[in-house]
Amino acid sequence: MSRYALDKVLWEYAREPAFRAAFDADAAAALAGRELSGAERAALVARDQRAIFTLGAHPFLLYSFAIALAGGWSFQLMHDYVARLEGLELGDIET
């Protein structure tokens, strides 16, 4: 299962400035060599938070990723984030 690799990308993006800079410059290149499924890779490159959630990423890591993408937390960010997940149900997130 590649969910671990998906979660790790979210985790590193929020915590590792060098990885974040590389991802921001060229996400596909930054993910080269990562053991991700095609759907996971595409969702990450597109920063498609709804798709990443549906693929079973840990919600807390996805939220950290969204906060980092936005450059910091704000009420607006929180509302935008929830709007992207509207209608989705919690699923399995075990790695």
Binding site: F60, Y63, E89
Partner: peptide, 9 residues
């Protein structure tokens, strides 16, 4: 608690 999930608000 639903921090980070669709039910956060």
């Amino acid at each position: 608690n639903s921090v980070g999930g669709p039910g956060m608000l």
